[in-house]
Amino acid sequence: MKTRPAKRTLGRRELVDFPAFALLGVEAKVDTGAYTSALHCTGVHEAPGPAGAPVLRGRLHDPDHPGSDGRALEFAEFTRRGIRSSNGEVQERYVIEAVVRLYGKDFWVEFSLSDRSDMKYPVLLGRSLLRQGRFVVDVARRNLSHKAAVRAAARRAAT
Protein backbone atom coordinates (compact mmCIF):
# COMPACT_ATOMS: atom_id res chain seq x y z
CA MET A 1 0.00 0.00 0.00
CA LYS A 2 1.29 3.44 -0.92
CA THR A 3 1.83 5.80 2.02
CA ARG A 4 1.01 9.47 1.75
CA PRO A 5 3.41 12.10 3.03
CA ALA A 6 2.36 13.72 6.29
CA LYS A 7 0.44 16.95 6.11
CA ARG A 8 2.09 20.08 7.50
CA THR A 9 0.15 22.61 9.53
CA LEU A 10 -0.06 26.29 8.66
CA GLY A 11 -1.44 28.95 10.96
CA ARG A 12 -4.07 31.47 9.92
CA ARG A 13 -1.22 33.90 9.29
CA GLU A 14 2.22 32.93 7.98
CA LEU A 15 5.48 34.69 7.20
CA VAL A 16 6.43 33.57 3.69
CA ASP A 17 9.50 34.03 1.53
CA PHE A 18 9.65 34.96 -2.15
CA PRO A 19 13.22 33.98 -3.12
CA ALA A 20 12.97 35.32 -6.70
CA PHE A 21 11.98 38.76 -5.40
CA ALA A 22 14.57 38.67 -2.55
CA LEU A 23 11.72 39.13 -0.06
CA LEU A 24 11.76 37.25 3.22
CA GLY A 25 9.18 37.20 5.98
CA VAL A 26 6.21 38.74 4.16
CA GLU A 27 2.97 38.49 6.12
CA ALA A 28 0.38 36.33 4.40
CA LYS A 29 -3.18 35.43 5.28
CA VAL A 30 -4.09 31.79 4.75
CA ASP A 31 -7.55 31.74 3.19
CA THR A 32 -9.24 28.38 2.66
CA GLY A 33 -12.13 30.19 0.97
CA ALA A 34 -9.95 31.51 -1.86
CA TYR A 35 -8.83 29.18 -4.63
CA THR A 36 -6.14 31.40 -6.17
CA SER A 37 -3.46 33.11 -4.11
CA ALA A 38 -3.02 36.87 -4.46
CA LEU A 39 -0.06 39.25 -4.34
CA HIS A 40 -0.32 42.99 -3.73
CA CYS A 41 0.95 44.89 -6.78
CA THR A 42 0.15 48.34 -8.10
CA GLY A 43 0.33 49.77 -11.60
CA VAL A 44 -0.05 46.38 -13.25
CA HIS A 45 -0.09 46.70 -17.05
CA GLU A 46 1.04 45.03 -20.25
CA ALA A 47 3.91 46.61 -22.16
CA PRO A 48 5.88 45.69 -25.27
CA GLY A 49 8.82 43.49 -24.42
CA PRO A 50 11.82 42.17 -26.31
CA ALA A 51 11.03 40.95 -29.81
CA GLY A 52 7.56 42.50 -29.55
CA ALA A 53 6.18 39.91 -27.13
CA PRO A 54 4.12 41.57 -24.38
CA VAL A 55 5.41 41.57 -20.80
CA LEU A 56 3.53 42.28 -17.61
CA ARG A 57 4.85 45.08 -15.42
CA GLY A 58 3.86 46.26 -11.99
CA ARG A 59 5.24 47.36 -8.65
CA LEU A 60 5.49 45.16 -5.60
CA HIS A 61 4.09 47.20 -2.79
CA ASP A 62 3.92 46.56 0.94
CA PRO A 63 4.82 49.72 2.84
CA ASP A 64 5.15 47.79 6.13
CA HIS A 65 7.86 45.48 4.80
CA PRO A 66 11.42 46.86 4.66
CA GLY A 67 12.33 44.71 1.64
CA SER A 68 9.36 45.87 -0.40
CA ASP A 69 10.44 49.16 -1.87
CA GLY A 70 7.91 49.41 -4.66
CA ARG A 71 10.41 47.76 -6.96
CA ALA A 72 9.40 47.13 -10.53
CA LEU A 73 8.56 43.55 -11.45
CA GLU A 74 8.36 42.16 -14.94
CA PHE A 75 6.86 38.86 -16.03
CA ALA A 76 7.22 37.36 -19.49
CA GLU A 77 4.68 34.62 -18.75
CA PHE A 78 1.24 35.59 -17.53
CA THR A 79 -2.44 35.05 -18.21
CA ARG A 80 -5.65 36.96 -17.63
CA ARG A 81 -8.69 35.34 -16.15
CA GLY A 82 -11.76 35.95 -14.07
CA ILE A 83 -11.11 35.83 -10.32
CA ARG A 84 -13.94 36.12 -7.81
CA SER A 85 -13.11 38.90 -5.34
CA SER A 86 -13.90 38.92 -1.63
CA ASN A 87 -17.15 40.78 -2.33
CA GLY A 88 -18.32 38.13 -4.80
CA GLU A 89 -17.68 40.03 -8.04
CA VAL A 90 -15.73 38.38 -10.83
CA GLN A 91 -12.82 40.61 -11.84
CA GLU A 92 -10.48 40.16 -14.78
CA ARG A 93 -6.98 39.90 -13.26
CA TYR A 94 -3.49 39.10 -14.36
CA VAL A 95 -2.13 35.81 -13.02
CA ILE A 96 1.55 34.90 -12.74
CA GLU A 97 3.47 31.97 -11.26
CA ALA A 98 5.98 32.62 -8.50
CA VAL A 99 7.89 30.55 -5.97
CA VAL A 100 6.79 30.82 -2.35
CA ARG A 101 8.83 29.13 0.38
CA LEU A 102 7.14 27.40 3.33
CA TYR A 103 8.80 24.99 5.76
CA GLY A 104 12.03 25.36 3.76
CA LYS A 105 10.43 23.99 0.60
CA ASP A 106 9.70 25.93 -2.59
CA PHE A 107 6.27 25.77 -4.22
CA TRP A 108 5.29 27.16 -7.61
CA VAL A 109 2.05 29.00 -6.99
CA GLU A 110 -0.33 30.97 -9.21
CA PHE A 111 -0.85 34.49 -7.87
CA SER A 112 -3.36 37.00 -9.12
CA LEU A 113 -1.85 40.47 -9.06
CA SER A 114 -4.18 42.98 -7.48
CA ASP A 115 -4.23 46.14 -5.45
CA ARG A 116 -4.64 44.89 -1.88
CA SER A 117 -4.00 48.27 -0.27
CA ASP A 118 -7.39 48.10 1.44
CA MET A 119 -6.53 44.67 2.89
CA LYS A 120 -4.49 44.02 6.03
CA TYR A 121 -2.14 41.49 4.43
CA PRO A 122 -0.27 41.92 1.13
CA VAL A 123 -0.35 38.20 0.34
CA LEU A 124 -3.24 35.77 0.35
CA LEU A 125 -2.53 32.04 0.22
CA GLY A 126 -5.37 30.07 -1.34
CA ARG A 127 -6.50 26.47 -1.59
CA SER A 128 -4.44 25.61 -4.67
CA LEU A 129 -1.25 26.03 -2.58
CA LEU A 130 -2.76 24.24 0.42
CA ARG A 131 -3.54 21.19 -1.73
CA GLN A 132 -0.20 21.24 -3.51
CA GLY A 133 1.77 21.38 -0.27
CA ARG A 134 -0.57 19.03 1.57
CA PHE A 135 -1.17 21.62 4.26
CA VAL A 136 -3.90 21.82 6.85
CA VAL A 137 -4.78 25.05 8.63
CA ASP A 138 -5.02 25.57 12.37
CA VAL A 139 -6.75 28.94 12.78
CA ALA A 140 -5.62 29.22 16.40
CA ARG A 141 -1.94 29.36 15.40
CA ARG A 142 0.41 31.70 13.51
CA ASN A 143 3.75 31.64 11.70
CA LEU A 144 4.37 27.90 12.07
CA SER A 145 6.56 27.68 8.96
CA HIS A 146 8.71 30.61 10.09
CA LYS A 147 9.09 29.20 13.62
CA ALA A 148 10.16 25.84 12.18
CA ALA A 149 12.79 27.61 10.02
CA VAL A 150 14.14 29.49 13.05
CA ARG A 151 14.40 26.25 15.05
CA ALA A 152 16.15 24.48 12.15
CA ALA A 153 18.66 27.35 11.82
CA ALA A 154 19.36 27.23 15.56
CA ARG A 155 19.99 23.46 15.37
CA ARG A 156 22.37 23.94 12.43
CA ALA A 157 24.25 26.69 14.30
CA ALA A 158 24.62 24.47 17.38
CA THR A 159 26.32 21.67 15.44
Rank of each mutant, 00 (worst) to 15 (best):
H40I: 04
G67N: 01
L102G: 01
A20H: 15
G82C: 09
G25T: 03
I96D: 05
V44K: 00
R127N: 03
V95D: 05
R59L: 15
P63C: 09
D62L: 01
G25Q: 10
R142N: 11
F21I: 06
D17A: 12
A98C: 11
S114F: 02
G67W: 00
V99C: 05
D106C: 11
R141F: 01
F107M: 02
A72S: 14
V136C: 03
R142F: 07
F21S: 08
R84K: 12
V99I: 09
H65L: 05
I96L: 10
R57S: 01
P63K: 08
G49N: 01
G104W: 11
D138R: 10
A38E: 05
T36P: 01
F107G: 06
L130M: 13
T9G: 08
P122V: 04
R127Y: 09
N143H: 14
Y35P: 06
G58K: 01
R84E: 09
E27H: 07
L130K: 00
F111A: 02
L73H: 01
F21W: 15
D69I: 13
R12Q: 13
G133Q: 02
L113C: 07
S117P: 08
S128H: 15
G104F: 10
L144S: 05
L102Y: 02
F78R: 07
A38S: 14
T42H: 12
G52S: 12
L73V: 14
F111I: 00
L56D: 06
D115P: 07
L144W: 05
R12H: 13
S112T: 09
I96V: 15
R59D: 13
A51V: 04
Q132S: 06
V136I: 14
V30E: 08
R116S: 06
L129H: 01
A51S: 12
G11A: 03
R80Q: 15
V137Y: 04
R81G: 11
D118I: 06
H61F: 14
N87I: 04
A140S: 13
H65C: 00
V90L: 14
R101F: 01
R116C: 02
P63M: 07
V137P: 08
G104Y: 12
R84V: 12
S114M: 10
L39R: 02
C41Q: 08
G67P: 00
K105Q: 15
F78M: 07
V26P: 01
E74S: 06
R116G: 02
P19R: 10
R13C: 04
